[in-house]
Amino acid sequence: MTPWDLHETYRLVQRVFGRDQEKLTRESARSVTDRQAFSSYHFAEAMRLSKDFERKHLGGNTRTILEIHVQGAEKKERAFQVFMVQAGAHSLAAVQSLHAIPDIFAHAIYFAAGQNLQSYALDDSKVAVQSVVSCLKKDSQFARLSSALHSMQSGPGWQHLAAVSSVVNHNYSG
């Protein structure tokens, strides 16, 4: 499979739909790559924090995590609490960034295919994978994109990510 040439896409969108539409497409596509980078960064930070904590606090006389919760290990226990907050924050951000990518990508496809210019255009707040799939199916020029877009939120990998995101969001929202 040949890689997607974003610059060619932008040129085509501008030629067919105009500069404003190309700008919307470009901003959405940039947001996809931003979320990928954010997720990678947060994952790397969570791993770095884990290794740092392990190196500093689980070496020597401390062999298990349980040993930092005993009398006399208050400093290690405080360090563990700080580690859990920091690593948890980075983990949450990584999961949320990954989970958002398909819907942001749906925006890029929606604008690149000029779906916002159609009579059945969606309200901005309704643009998401499933609604864009429905729009694409109505447009004979872009209908074949609908199954590829739909596949971004299907399969066991997506189900696991959605479940983790749901649990994490539920635990931190209330």
Results as ranks from 00 to 15, higher is better:
G88W: 00
S166L: 07
H107R: 11
K138L: 09
S31K: 13
Q71H: 13
L98F: 13
T33K: 06
G18V: 02
M47N: 08
W158A: 04
T2C: 15
A29T: 01
G155Y: 08
L122F: 01
N116C: 01
E8F: 03
R48F: 07
S154E: 12
V16S: 05
S165N: 14
S97H: 09
A112T: 02
T33A: 10
S31E: 14
N171I: 10
K126W: 03
A44I: 07
L49F: 00
F83T: 05
Q86V: 04
H107M: 10
A163V: 01
A162T: 12
L6G: 09
F53L: 12
A162K: 14
E8V: 00
R11V: 07
S39H: 03
T64N: 04
V95C: 03
E45D: 04
T62Q: 03
D52F: 12
G59C: 04
G174P: 08
R35C: 04
Q86E: 11
V164A: 11
D124F: 09
K56D: 13
A44T: 10
A162E: 15
V133N: 06
D34A: 11
A46K: 01
Q14Y: 06
S166K: 07
Q141C: 11
S134C: 11
F17M: 12
Y172M: 13
L12D: 06
A46P: 00
A162I: 10
T64V: 07
Q115L: 14
W158L: 06
E8M: 03
L136N: 00
V132Q: 01
S39D: 06
F17H: 15
Q36L: 14
G18F: 02
V32N: 03
M47L: 07
A163L: 08
D5P: 00
D123F: 12
H107N: 09
T2K: 15
D20I: 04
S97T: 05
A89M: 14
V168W: 04
G60V: 02
Q130W: 06
Q141K: 14
A148W: 15
R35S: 01
H160I: 06
V132M: 06
S140V: 05
S140N: 11
H90Y: 09
W4A: 08
R78I: 08
H150F: 11
V95F: 02
Q141P: 11
E22N: 13
N61Q: 08
A87M: 05
V164C: 07
V129Y: 05
A44L: 08
L6A: 12
S166Q: 08
L136I: 01
Q71D: 13
S151W: 07
T62F: 04
V82K: 08
S165V: 09
D52E: 15
S28V: 09
K76S: 11
K51H: 15
F43L: 03
H107Q: 13
D139A: 00
V95M: 03
G72C: 01
S140T: 09
N61P: 06
I101H: 06
S173E: 11
L136Q: 02
K51Q: 15
A44F: 11
T9M: 10
L145Q: 02
S28L: 06
F17S: 12
R15P: 10
V70S: 12
Q115V: 05
